[in-house]
Design a protein around this nucleic acid. Structure first.
Lengths: 156, 156
DNA sequence: ACAAGAAACTTTAAGCTTGAAATAATTTTC
DNA sequence: GAAAATTATTTCAAGCTTAAAGTTTCTTGT
């Protein structure tokens, strides 16, 4: 890690900037670790995991556009990830509801079983990686981030 | 946003998992917004901005490997981003120190001027996007994340 | 000195990501 | 009820990202 040779700037607004930088670094650090473990242990990727996690909560499936909104990624992106999951037999697209533009995407039985195993390991990893954060801090942080989220959603 | 139809799970370990999910969502939300504004307002990208921000702090420049470590991305990745910045005239590679394997990378004068402008806008955006987080919470969050970081660095 | 190993960087292949353009199906408007 | 607008999704081009393999240049052990 390269130490910043310039003195830490201060002033109004700098506190938020510093917070953002820390937030980004923390999530990138954890993300990198998860990515590596998913690859090594289960030969899968974080985006695939994210899609499967979203679908796991909703057995009847989700529309592509719901997935895209939920995961905060572009719809073209979801198409590619789902394509790969389908070709691996973990996910199925069901065309034809009433609206023939849409396709309902859901985990296959294999996908569901596979995800359950990975998710258990994932939860353990998070426990390990965030283990040094006290229960108290974890709850406090969570509630601050929750209030950030609701502020965000009510903006514009 | 799709609401989770399953009841929120509880139990030991779930608090950390919930924290991680919130952390990830918060940073992705902000990242997406920054990415979009960087594109729209300055026709640049977050990775380019990150590299320039790292270099801006160190006028004499950094080695590729330092950049890679500092930004938490792979070295092959940095090569590509720096290539593009060089072709745009914002960054310069200076071969030949004593060690001819290394190249010292630094902002050009144009790059430095350009970054200063973008950075000012960026800081304003962060102030806006995180504006609803109180100064107090911002400092508390920052210190929690800092202690996470130092715990992290001391692991393994 | 010289071979073996390590270090700094680039290249490559595969996959992720975005924004924009293209398709196809539905809804709205006149 | 046809044209226009909207919605859901896919395709595309460009760029980001990683891990692994390759190149070049030091460094080390003998």
């Amino acid at each position: 890690m390269v130490a910043g040779p310039l003195p830490a700037p201060s002033g109004p607004g700098k506190d938020r900037l510093r917070l953002w930088i820390r937030l980004l670094r923390a999530s990138r650090t954890i993300e990198a670790e998860l990515r590596e473990r998913l690859k090594k242990e289960f030969n899968t990727t974080l985006p695939r995991f994210d899609v499967m996690a979203a679908l796991y909560r909703v057995p009847e499936g989700m529309l592509m556009s719901d997935l895209s909104r939920f995961l905060l990624v572009s719809n073209g992106n979801v198409t590619g990830i789902v394509d790969r999951l389908v070709s691996e037999g973990l996910v199925a697209r069901a065309r034809r509801n009433g609206d023939r533009r849409t396709s309902m995407v859901r985990l296959t039985e294999e996908g569901s079983k596979s995800f359950a195993i990975i998710a258990a390991a994932h939860e353990g990893w998070i426990g390990e990686l965030l283990g040094k954060v006290s229960e108290d801090d974890a709850r406090r942080l969570t509630s601050m981030l929750t209030s950030f989220r609701s502020n965000w959603e009510g903006r514009e």
